[in-house]
């Protein structure tokens, strides 16, 4: 049975237009080199965390002299998923969550979320990322882009809690609970292996 099935799969790829492996390798190395340089910058900045553009943040195009590729503030503040995690956020079945508070969240709201995540047995690990440290990492990461750094200060970054769930099946329930709490602005989930940074973001 498997033999026949295997033949069917082979037939299905018979239309392969082909591609020189050397060209594929070169293209991958060029793209991979860019990822690598970016990540090295992140590591040098202290496992920098880029922070999501919270609610009301204006998306402004930087002056053109910033050079290609054009960078928007929102894009620069977007969280970079850790390399071993899913590239794009997932809506369900996440192993790791990043819970961003609104920039207007009060200390009382922050403390309530903190108590909730520490007291929840479905959450295996918690790391708090303050807006100050998020901003510092942003400044280090974009040190070569002074217009971008000047355009944004720490108050525009949100605090966030980075969580690792005990089981991905509990993602929806945990998200629903935290999303309902006052002060929580956005929750981003990723699928990550156990050796990824907690929360799935750099």
């Amino acid at each position: 049975m498997d033999g026949h099935l295997r033949d069917r799969f082979d037939e299905a790829v018979a239309g392969d237009p082909g591609l020189a492996p050397g060209a594929l390798a070169r293209a991958a190395m060029a793209e991979g080199g860019r990822i690598r340089r970016r990540r090295t910058g992140l590591t040098a900045a202290g496992a920098a965390v880029l922070v999501v553009a919270a609610g009301g943040l204006a998306v402004a195009n930087l002056p053109r002299d910033a050079g290609p590729p054009p960078v928007t503030i929102a894009a620069a503040m977007l969280p970079a998923p850790a390399s071993s995690c899913s590239v794009e956020p997932v809506e369900e079945g996440a192993t790791d969550l990043a819970v961003f508070l609104g920039t207007a969240a009060t200390e009382r709201q922050r403390a309530a979320v903190e108590a909730a995540v520490h007291g929840d047995t479905r959450i295996g690990a918690v790391v708090f990322e303050s807006r100050q440290s998020a901003h510092q990492r942003f400044v280090s990461l974009w040190a070569d882009n002074p217009e971008l750094v000047a355009a944004i200060d720490a108050s525009q970054f949100p605090d966030s809690f980075r969580l690792r769930l005990v089981a991905a099946e509990q993602d929806a329930a945990v998200r629903a609970r935290l999303a309902a709490m006052p002060g929580v602005e956005q929750i981003i989930g990723h699928r990550c292996p156990v050796d990824a940074p907690v929360g799935g973001l750099w």
Partner: peptide, 27 residues
């Protein structure tokens, strides 16, 4: 690349997905 094609039904997209996969590995 062929497995990528079986997953997405499009050879061009399969090439992009494969390149992206390899780029992540190279990095």
């Amino acid at each position: 690349r062929r497995s990528a094609y079986l997953m997405c039904r499009d050879w061009h997209l399969a090439q992009d997905l494969t390149q992206h996969t390899l780029a992540k590995m190279y990095a």
